[in-house]
Design a binder for these strands. Structure first.
Lengths: 366, 366
DNA sequence: GTCGTTGGTGGTAGCGCTGTCAACGTTCCT
DNA sequence: AGGAACGTTGACAGCGCTACCACCAACGAC
């Protein structure tokens, strides 16, 4: 009874249409723009499709329509906890949509990013998510020329290609240092690993804050291109102690380093926070649970991913946001590793539920 | 001068063929099976493609060839560190190939897995990676019927659908308990979170080992469906202490829990390892760096992902492995949290470089 | 020398879907 | 009442590529 079919019982759109007693085009429209159909035909096609177990052939759709339902995502690392949170947000937001995520890893190389971008763009993605604002000129040009919405995530800065969601790493670092200043610290060390552009901007923020306070000292900075790890945190802290034995606190550019510092202090019997205060960055889950609990700068990673995908999908479907650049801000979460030394009215900082100071500023550091 | 072209200067295969002075079919063959061409034509097509910047249209290819160059990967969680390592291996191995990875998150639901499987299979993937061996009957049937290679990862067990890479979580747990027995421990607690099938099998291994030794006690087990976290480790340990104050050691079904236990012991001033020994599972990076360093069962997660993708791609391209089931084994990495109490000839266990006992057995527990 | 046989090449005919445009019936306006 | 406007539907012609089969030359076997 069926029309000709090449492959094993595969249901095609034509079968659905025949079953529903409509033309293939009407059936096609049902899947793309159901509102355009009359109530009656919509129901007929819907039940026919369900009955036959129809699954559209995405390759044919892509070929005929000159576009895909793929959102390309370029991130620098799969290992980093930070990106796994962002990714989870992206996947969660895309799950209820028709779009699928195509992930690629740039390994912190903007040249690799450029190469991948070229590859992605050639397949006419529905949208693109790229990490950061430090693309090559060539990449930037390709993104500008792309005929799909683009979302830059992780940080905000001038000259967005299209949309942008993130926060100012510079301001966040300044807020971390301001917090330590408030608690009475002066000799504040900086520990940084990987030194990707965002960590670099945290270092910039640290330097600016220290210089403004007249406290800058090159010997307070230990930074390496080595990928981050807890073990590395201990090693960098050891270096820092050797360079500057008189530090009273450390700003770690991420939480893994902070945990490494915590352990190294245990090993050296350095009391936290009495001898050295610690503040981390990102506020990973374990920070609230360490002993002592560790102060950190909370960033909204999951939300960043979720919003990025949501806004991107909206833009793909023609609902462009009124506000293309979104600053998700950050919070300094005060915990035991950086206590208030003054006995003023500030609420105590003693764990996850402790007083938080919300800081969310537009990026304005250059 | 070119032939008709629908879209803005997009180079099609026909253009390349024309430029190279061959037929489109010959050009097509160049990309699929270069060896089939004569030396001369191969060079001509190659330079023409390069000169024109030709990028094949994957949708057209998929439509015409009835297959895609997509490897579907179904994992239960994006957050879990364990899977991010596996994923990194998969992405690394696929990067140099023509295949792209399509990732989906089952959220530890085998019903969701079944749904996603149906979706994936309909797009005729080149290959499929699924997590674990606990698919629904329906899923299993679909996988059996699929006309592409299938790789099951994370554990090994009976009745592989096709290929399988992993290790026995049951045996690994037994090895962890055997290690604690050797060190003289008897009241060994078990802490488990999420209780997915693999954690369940670790519990099974724990129970079997304890029963075999005549030491089993239901009150030694604290397990919850709650997703794992460091904080949860502390909470579960608190529960365990309430149920069994006389424990001498804890086997944590993963390292996050172990870190939580470490912090909770600090909080309660319980000495590790003097009062309580700890062993974790997976050997995440921080285990070697904690104070004291934490014993764990090392699993080859990155390697698992890398091998899975490599073998799958080989199978897709017709190079089927001689050995479809691969046991990657595990290692108990002895560290300070579970020291040798006897002063025999066993090498000391004092850090990352400490003596390791290699155990790698085929799954044989049922 | 004729016949396979092989390796290399090309022609034809779609893959399953959607863009475009035309055509239809209905409603609303003047 | 006539016409425009709208909402709904369908016919047709590909999208860019590859499967399939046919073909041709060059080679060795008999």
């Amino acid at each position: 009874m069926g029309r000709k079919r090449t492959k094993s019982g595969k249901i095609r759109l034509a079968e659905v249409a025949e079953h529903a007693g409509v033309s293939p085009i009407t059936a096609s429209r049902f899947f793309r723009n159901p509102e355009a159909l009359s109530e009656a035909k919509r129901a007929r096609v819907e039940s026919a499709a369900k009955e036959l177990g129809y699954v559209p052939n995405l390759a044919a759709r892509a070929l005929a329509s000159h576009r895909t339902e793929v959102i390309g995502v370029l991130i620098p690392s799969l290992t980093n906890n930070v990106f796994s949170d962002v990714l989870r947000g992206i996947y969660d937001a895309s799950e209820s949509s028709r779009y699928s995520i195509q992930l690629s890893n740039t390994r912190y190389s903007i040249l690799q990013e450029e190469k991948l971008l070229r590859l992605f763009l050639a397949q006419k993605p529905a949208g693109l998510v790229v990490t950061g604002i430090d693309q090559t000129a060539e990449s930037h040009a390709m993104l500008e020329a792309a005929d799909c919405p683009i979302m830059q995530i992780m940080e905000i800065g001038p000259n967005p290609v299209d949309m942008m969601i993130g926060f100012s790493h510079y301001d966040a670092a300044r807020a971390a240092i301001a917090h330590l200043f408030e608690q009475g610290h002066r000799r504040i060390g900086f520990l940084g690993a990987r030194m990707d552009p965002r960590v670099q901007r945290r270092l910039d923020g640290y330097q600016a804050a220290m210089k403004d306070a007249g406290l800058f000292d090159q010997r307070l900075i230990v930074a390496t291109a080595t990928p981050t790890s807890v073990t590395l945190g201990g090693a960098l802290f050891t270096d820092l102690l050797a360079k500057s034995p008189d530090i009273d606190s450390v700003f770690c550019a991420n939480d893994d380093l902070a945990l490494g510092v915590l352990f190294e202090c245990r090993r050296r019997e350095i009391a936290i926070p009495e001898q050295i205060a610690i503040i981390g960055f990102n506020d990973l889950e374990f920070m609230a649970s360490a002993v002592p609990t560790l102060t950190s700068v909370r960033t909204n990673r999951y939300e960043m991913g979720r919003m990025a995908a949501t806004m991107l999908i909206d833009a793909i479907e023609g609902r462009r946001p009124e506000q293309p650049v979104l600053d998700l801000g950050f919070k300094v979460i005060e915990r035991q590793s950086s206590p208030a030394r003054r006995s003023d009215s500030r609420p105590g900082a003693s764990g996850a539920g402790a007083a938080n100071k919300m800081v969310a500023l537009p990026s304005s550091h250059d």
